[in-house]
């Protein structure tokens, strides 16, 4: 009798998925598109806030687009289109989260060069989307004032995996007797150091503050992710600035004569 043969595998379960996500992330970096994965429970106000963010960006001349995932219907895509930004709908046919292959399929044939922000509105669910990397630049978790202060403690994995937390529907905080300090504490408990912003889709100032924050984040990320590797095809003629000659290759003499 021989003992049963054991094959040591030591392989990440999400191997294929994560590899695809890494490829997609590299593509997004090459087009300098900041991809934002929005995750929350159903009813937190992702679509409402995103519509206003897109509207604000379109108004400020920032190119932004959205991909929206839902189990059924294209209602959210129709709502988001009112902002004037290009929108594509992903119907997951019951699946409770978006996967990287869906993102890959839906960005096919979409020229992302010149698109500064691509928002991915995930399926409303605070559990399942946390395990799936979509190649996003930032994961943003939303929590509304109507949901209860302890939600971060109930869904620690999602809050822990996020880069930014937004508290939505702040205009309703008084009638809901919302306890902001406790909520912030709870988010910090499961995700220390995360940035928390208060938002309201009804208040243009708060939407603009969020847009400012996202623009700043994109600039910072571009500085860290693209060190002198910008390929010629990703730089459009209009954006090519005179300072493209790097100081290392230019001698002081030629600089002084210029």
């Amino acid at each position: 009798m021989t003992s049963p043969r054991v094959v040591e595998l030591r392989k990440n379960v999400m191997n294929r998925h994560d590899r695809k996500a890494a490829l997609l992330r590299r593509y997004f970096e090459s087009t300098e598109t900041c991809v934002i994965n929005l995750v929350s429970s159903p009813g937190t106000g992702k679509t409402e806030l995103l519509t206003e963010v897109l509207r604000s960006m379109v108004g400020r001349g920032i190119s932004a687009a959205a991909l929206v995932g839902d189990c059924a219907t294209d209602n959210d895509a129709k709502r988001l289109e009112a902002s004037g930004a290009p929108v594509r709908q992903i119907v997951t046919e019951g699946l409770c989260h978006l996967e990287v292959t869906m993102i890959d399929q839906h960005v096919q044939g979409w020229d992302l060069n010149g698109i500064d922000f691509l928002f991915i509105e995930n399926v409303g669910n605070l559990v399942c989307p946390s395990a799936f990397d979509l190649g996003e630049t930032l994961r943003v978790v939303l929590l509304s004032v109507t949901e209860g202060e302890d939600k971060p403690l109930k869904y620690p994995q999602m809050f822990n995996s996020a880069d930014l937390a937004l508290i939505t529907k702040m205009d309703l905080s008084e009638p809901c007797e919302f306890d902001l300090a406790t909520t912030q504490d709870n988010i910090e408990t499961v995700s220390p150091g995360i940035t928390i912003l208060e938002t309201s889709a009804r208040h243009p100032n708060s939407v603009n503050a969020l847009v400012d924050h996202l623009i700043e984040s994109r600039v910072k990320l571009l500085e860290t992710t693209s060190p002198e590797t910008t390929s010629p095809e990703t730089t459009s003629p209009e954006t090519t600035s005179p300072e493209t000659t790097s100081p290392e290759t230019t001698s002081p003499e030629t600089l002084s004569t210029a």
Binding site: P4, R5, V6, V7, E8, L9, R10, K11, N12, V13, M14, A131, L153, P156, Q157, N160, E188, T189, V190, S191, P192, G193
Partner: peptide, 30 residues
């Protein structure tokens, strides 16, 4: 539990060393 604070020092602990992995360790041939 999912409270990201050091149980000894009470400080915040944002750096995660393990707990996020999902690995197939091995399989046994039938």
């Amino acid at each position: 539990d999912m409270v990201f604070r050091c149980p000894v020092h009470g400080c915040q602990t944002p750096e995660i060393l393990s707990g996020k992995g999902m690995e197939i360790l091995r399989f046994e041939v039938a």
